[in-house]
Design a protein around this nucleic acid. Structure first.
Length: 436
RNA sequence: GCGCCCAUCGUCUAUCGGUUAGGACACCAGGUUUUCAUCCUGGUAAGCGGGGUUCGAUUCCCCGUGGGCGCGCCA
């Protein structure tokens, strides 16, 4: 029988990083096995389940390149089926009706655990056991007539002919209940594999407080989807050996559940950022430009820039763009009203002699051929005249013309900016920003 | 409290009884770049503790400790 797995998000508009990691593992498993990766929309919470929210989930999947097979199953449409199954369980004695705890709300339907020790073999954790005394009967239909998670879950998994359920660690205990439900229904249960949780630096479940927590956050913070995918695939799974940066095809080829580890893994945004920079550095320039423009869509200054000039800037900046969002700092290439970093101004311009040096540099730059080689020579001469060592003035010049401490090569940056802007900024800095 | 699971550098991990315990991020030191970012080289850094089993344990077993998860008419 061919493999069928599913991703079952609640359409709340946000997809948590832990959930998408589960989706990635399911997807990788399905593709590795040549099986199907299905989508089930758990939209029984009518309040929060809007079409927009569903679209946001679909967008997140699409952004990461996680494609699904067949039509999604909507859980809300299956409540009748769920209840029919509950009735059937009551009929054949596997469930009973009771006002549990005497709430007075009416009777709910409770599944009767078979009263024997339970065991199943988890695809990542190995053989798991539970004694009968630790297994309690549980509610499958609430007294208001709605099915609970357990009932809906297994009913839909049966409908979708799911063969492998790969889900978060927090469901291990539920598995004993679910297996019992399958057996009561006379259906062979699927195989289960439970994934370790993603935790923060304190070892607690990763949450919004720890930085980006939802897929959309990573997108807006300038991460490349392939980098996020790659990083997440490696959180709790390893192909063995030293491989880290891998293509989709390589991950699919290498992915097996028995190489998934069993303890929680800590999310490291710094390492993710490094992986992202590797993806950015290695990508074709056109792709890079398209991604950057996407991120810059909200910036006023980036709206009507010259296409060719933008290309040149992008070429210069690609290797140092660890996140697409860094491009927000490119404004000085295009506009004169860019911001000056206060710290850099203090460090680079508020020193004795800088005012004089910058203004004489501006004059010296006036008549020359404005190329990297010549600029370099002129700066050197200015430094000598000012009694400074070579390279001493570079930082001050950089701050004067870009407002910040880091950027591309200084001479290349100057050439790209052009003589007019450079002179204007050097003089502006000398007159308005310098001070001893 | 009870049950289940887990345990290698700060972090992500490799190792399936015999290794100088490897890689990556981060960090530190050099080099390249007369500047920035890359890049290159090198370095610091780990088997939780205690018992076994074995000629030999990071690896297998037990106990302890630590951590995670679960114990809803939530999902």
């Amino acid at each position: 029988m061919s493999v069928r797995v599913r991703f079952a998000p609640s359409p709340t508009g946000n997809v948590h990083i832990g959930n998408i990691r589960t989706a990635i593992f399911n997807w990788l498993f399905a593709r590795h096995e040549g099986g199907k990766f299905l989508l089930r929309v758990e939209d029984t919470d009518r309040e929060r389940s809007t079409p927009e929210a569903l679209q946001a989930v679909l967008d997140a999947l699409n952004w990461l390149g996680i494609d699904y097979d067949e039509e999604p199953l909507y859980q809300s449409k299956r409540i009748g089926v769920h209840l029919a199954i509950a009735e059937k369980l009551v009929q054949n004695g596997h469930a009973y009706k009771e006002d549990k705890g005497g709430t007075g709300k009416g009777e709910c339907i409770i599944f009767k655990m078979p009263g024997k020790d339970a065991v199943y073999t988890d695809l990542v954790k190995g053989e798991l056991r539970k004694e009968a005394k630790d297994l309690k009967d549980f509610v499958i239909v609430r007294s208001d007539g709605t099915p609970t998670f357990h009932l809906a879950n297994i009913a839909d998994d049966i409908e979708m002919k799911i063969t492998h359920i790969i889900r978060g660690d927090d469901h291990v205990e539920n598995t004993f209940k679910h297996v019992a439900l399958y057996e009561a229904l006379g259906v062979t249960p699927p195989k289960y594999g439970h994934l370790p949780m993603i935790v923060n630096a304190q070892g607690k479940p990763y949450s919004k407080r720890d930085g980006a927590a939802f897929v959309g956050d990573f997108k807006s913070n300038g991460f490349h989807p392939d980098a996020l995918f790659n990083y997440l695939a490696l959180l709790g799974w390893s192909p063995g050996g030293d491989r880290e940066k891998m293509t989709r095809a390589e991950m699919i080829e290498a992915f097996t559940l028995d190489r998934v580890k069993s303890g929680p893994s800590q999310m490291d945004l710094v390492k993710l950022t490094h992986m992202n920079s590797e993806y950015v550095a290695g990508m074709p320039q056109d792709d890079f430009i398209a991604r950057v423009k996407d991120v810059l869509a909200g910036a006023d200054w980036a709206r009507n820039v010259d296409e060719n000039f933008f290309r040149e800037v992008a070429a210069l900046m690609q290797s140092r763009t660890h996140l697409y969002s860094y491009a927000a700092g490119w404004k000085y290439f295009f506009m004169d009203d860019f911001d000056y970093e206060e710290k850099s101004v203090n460090k680079g311009l508020k020193k004795e002699g800088i005012r004089q040096a910058l203004s004489s540099l501006a004059s010296a730059l006036e008549g020359i051929d404005f190329s990297v080689g010549t600029i370099e020579k002129i700066i050197h001469e200015t430094e000598l005249a000012a009694g400074a060592k070579q390279g001493k003035l570079n930082f001050s010049i950089r701050v004067a013309i870009t407002g910040c401490a880091t950027g591309a090569g200084l001479y290349e940056t100057m050439v790209l900016l052009g003589r007019d802007k450079v002179l204007k900024r050097l003089r502006h800095a000398a007159e308005k920003l310098c001070g001893e």
